[in-house]
Every structure is written in C-alpha cells, then in structure tokens.
Nucleic acid binder design. Structure first.
Lengths: 220, 220
DNA sequence: ATAACTTTGTACTAGACGGTTAATAATTAA
DNA sequence: TTAATTATTAACCGTCTAGTACAAAGTTAT
C-alpha cells in the first residue's frame, strides 16, 4: 500500500523502485507537455536511471504513457476509497462527496492534465485498459447508494441517474482545474483566489444539492 | 462578414482566400493533433497552396497556431451575437442562454479542442492576445444585464457574480464536449445518445435556474 | 550452480521535423 | 511605369527524436 519512494539501500537492485521512479518523472512530464510534447530523453535525464531502462520496462513511449495513465487512475481511486459516507444522512453524504471531489481535483492538477491529454487523444489508450474501467465503477456504486437512500428518505427527486449525477459533479470539479489557465487569462476575476475557490466549491455543492432535492412542479 | 471559401476565379491572386484556406486546414489539424502533434508538412499538403506560403503569412508554426486560436474565438463571438435576449423575461433569457451555450459548444468541438489545447499550454498564447479578451467581455456584459433584470424582478437571489455564473454555465457546457471521449469510454451510458444529450442540456438549464432562483433559507 | 532477471552507459541510426533557400515571375496598386 | 505584393516549387539544412545495438556484468531465485 505504501507508495513512498525509498531507495532501499539494503537491496542493490530495486526493480519496483526504478519502475516507480520512471513513472513519477514521466507522469509529470506528460502532464506538463502532453504525449507528443514530452521528450523521452528529457524523462530519462530526470530519472535516477537511464533511457535504456525506460524501454526495458515500458517498451516504448506509448507504453510509458499508458502506464502513467493507469497509475494515475489507480492513485485517484485509492484517495476516494478513504471517504466514509455510509454513516451520513444522504444529503450530507452527497454534500461531502461533491466537496471532496472538488477539492481532490484541485489538489491533483497533474491527474486532471493527464485526463485532458487523454481526451485530446480521443481516449485511445483508456479504451484499451481494463484496469481503469474497474476504478470508476466504484464511484458509481457509491452514488447509487446515496441516491437510493435519499429517495427512500423522501429527500431526493425520483428520476435520478447516478451516471448523470457523476457527470454533473465531475463537470463542476474538473472544469475548475482544466480551464483555469484560459479562464483566468480572459477574466481577471477573483474566482481563483483562495476565497473565490471556497465560494466556487460551496456553490457547486449547493447546485448539486438543489438539483437532487428539486421536486417536479416546485419551481420553473 | 461572409467567411465562405470562394476561389474567386476572376481574380488570379487571392491573398485572403489563401490565408483562410490555410487557417481552415490548420485549425482542423491543431484541433485534431495538438500544437506539437500537428505537422506543418501535413498542413501544407492539405492546403491548396504550399508550405512556403504558410511561412509567408504566419511566420512560424506558433504564429499559425495563434492565428487559429484568434479566428476560433472570433467565430464563436459572431455566433453569440445573434442571440437576442433583451426582449425576454430574465429567467427565460437565462434559460435560453444556457441552452444555447450547451448546444453551441456541442456543435463546435474543434473550438473546444483548441481551447483544451490552449489550457494544456497554460494559456500562453491567449495571454498575449488582446483580440480575444475583448470577445469575452461581451458575454459577461450580457449576463450582467440578465442578472440585474432578474434581481429587480425579484426572481433571482441577491449575491450573484456574473463571472461566476459564466463559469458555471461554461463548466456544464464545456465538460460535455471536452470529456466526452474518456467519459463514454469509462461508462457505457446513454448520456451521449441523442436523447441523453437532450436530457443533459435540460438538466443543465434546470441546475442554473434553480441556483439563481434559490433564496437563502429556502432549503439546505 | 545455473538460469533468469536487472542494470549500466555510450554511441548510434534512420527518419521526421521545422524552417530556409533560391530562382522566378505574375499580379496589382501607386 | 514602377515598386510592392503575392505566389510557385522543390530541394535542402541542421537539429531533434524515438528507438536500438552492443557490450558487459551484477544480482537473485531456484
């Protein structure tokens, strides 16, 4: 479970460590420059090992990129697993989940950037990865539980689709990170100050809660 | 105003046409492969003219990319200008604006992809473009008007920030297009069917409307 | 002991890439 | 008429890039 980068000096050879080191460095590079923008030579120079070892472990540049993607998704999953929502009332649980997602994305810009890059590539690599599909089904199951509990308690509206709800939460959380550069370049706003981000998060939670709580005919 | 691509055979030389043709082709290529992924040779091969002329008009690859970005933003603005919202009640106007934005983004995936790419590059090119900043201030002015009218009519809550509202509308509309590949690769859902997209749009409108209409203490 | 696995490091290649040159000339605005 | 602008074409250049070759050897599991 521990993913620390420790040289483990007792062991002279450290395959896992080397692999991990390469993965760390290349994830940063891919996130920074994109798939075609990242340079294998540069990645190699930043690792503790050599270019030769990159090809030894990952075959080629695409293989390395794929490995980075998978590692990133797994890491995110590990984070989400720590959330304990079962003990909370459904509306509180949902509020916590939205807030958590918003914060989590904000704290992991490299992951967001990898997903952006993958989208630019039309998800070509993700499509062929079984590992990653599993990761996300957990998130949906989580949401399904909350929705059911909320509906049983008469708190939530009837027609709620967990995948759609996940989409809505993701949209507000993802966009915040992915489009920060263009958005803050275009509007010299306070949205990306500490205060602004807190407001944005609170309002994201509010939007989702209002949406799931809204019963037909109440408004509009 | 007319941006059609007409050879204009009466005129033997057609600078505007050549420029436009290069712009069209390269926008598609940049949207498809990214800034470093797109190939100048390939772009040249797809134009009616030669590589030499690309450098003649745009200096270098980055200059060409910058020109594509500016053209894309201008084109989007032209579309938004056609909307006439002043005659509508503020809530109807906002609903129409959200629906329009959602549809507009969906119909212009190449524009979205260019913005994604620009975000990957931390908005480096956008920052140095005065043209583009102007385009977006119009959108904010539009929203400011709607908000004020809505508040005066007692329909909208008091604390509304036009830039934040624009952010929220953009998030739901942009994410729908930008993350379609990964999202539909991960969840084999109906969200991207014709029906699903209609639902998603309707719910986006609903979310925004609920949010702006929500008065403190009413819920939550 | 043996075989499989892991590591190092440099030098190299074959091709792709962005960008230029050169020579040339037709068209157009003044 | 003159001068600036707009065009054509293909070869070419230097650099960068992903990936390999090669040669050698230490480490570990069985």
């Amino acid at each position: 479970m521990e993913l620390e980068e420790r040289p483990n000096k007792a062991v002279k050879r450290d395959p896992k460590g080397v692999r991990l080191n390469i993965l760390r460095v290349s994830s940063k590079e891919f996130a920074e420059y994109g798939l075609s923008g990242a340079r294998v030579n540069e990645i190699a120079a930043l690792t503790k090992t050599s270019k030769r070892m990159i090809y030894y472990y990952f075959g080629d540049k695409n293989g390395l990129y794929r490995a980075c993607l998978e590692a990133a998704y797994s890491h995110v999953r590990a984070g989400e697993e720590k959330l304990d929502l079962a003990g909370l009332a459904p509306d509180k649980a949902l509020a916590k989940l939205v807030g958590f997602t918003f914060d989590h994305h904000r704290k992991n810009p490299d992951f967001i950037r990898l997903v952006m890059i993958e989208n630019i590539h039309k998800a070509a690599y993700l499509k062929s990865s079984d590992i990653i599909r599993k990761v996300n089904s957990a998130a949906i199951k989580n949401l399904t539980g909350i929705i059911t509990r909320g509906q049983d308690a008469g708190l939530f509206r009837d027609e709620l689709d967990p995948v759609e709800l996940h989409w809505q939460i993701s949209a507000l959380s993802f966009f915040n990170v992915s489009n920060k550069p263009t958005f803050s370049a275009l509007f010299n706003s306070e949205l990306y100050s500490k205060e602004g981000q807190r407001t944005l998060r609170d309002h994201a939670v509010e939007m989702i809660l209002l949406y799931v709580s809204h019963k037909k005919g109440t408004l509009l």
